[in-house]
């Protein structure tokens, strides 16, 4: 059984002061993450155990997809439980302006988006959050 994780991350940030009193900032990041099990190879129960009627019980009338209750072959499906595939993007932009040498105004916008392509036991991790903040700064 092999396990592989892989992640690409790209990030950028910028600060720009077009005027002495005015400043702009921006930050962005993008991450792609993946993880999965491969080469999980369980065979059917050996003939030893197939002789045991309780272990090799024929339950096909109840669940045709799993005709034998304790067949180790079914364990191969657990590889899908470990799959990880998500994309995460975050953007933050801000602007600030100095009304006077002591008083300034500012604005920030934050955007976050996670796309979860492979749910696991915690359910879907998809989420989008946006936040807008205004602030006043006083220097002394």
């Amino acid at each position: 059984m092999d396990y592989r994780t892989e992640a690409h991350t790209i990030m950028a940030s910028a600060v720009w002061n077009p005027m002495p009193r005015f400043s702009l900032t921006a930050n962005a990041s993008y991450t792609m993450g993946r993880g999965n099990i491969t080469d999980l190879e369980f065979g059917h129960l050996s003939e030893f155990f197939q002789q045991d009627l309780k272990i090799w019980m024929d339950t096909s009338s109840i669940n045709p997809n799993m005709p034998h209750l304790y067949d180790t072959f079914y364990l191969n499906d657990m590889s899908s439980y470990s799959n990880l595939d998500f994309k995460d993007m975050e953007i933050e932009v801000g602007a600030s302006y100095a009304l006077t040498p002591k008083v300034g105004l500012g604005l920030k916008y934050f955007y976050s988006d996670v796309e979860d392509e492979e749910e696991y036991v915690y359910g879907s991790q998809d989420v989008t959050v946006q936040s807008l903040m205004g602030f006043v700064t006083y220097r002394f």
Binding site: D113, G123, Q125, V127, V129, L132, M133, V136, F140
Partner: peptide, 24 residues
Amino acid sequence: QISVGAAITMDDIDNDEDGAVGLG
């Protein structure tokens, strides 16, 4: 310096969905 700010936040989280909150 002192900074006083106020924020408005929007999200698409369904808090009734078994308390599930996204990774972000």
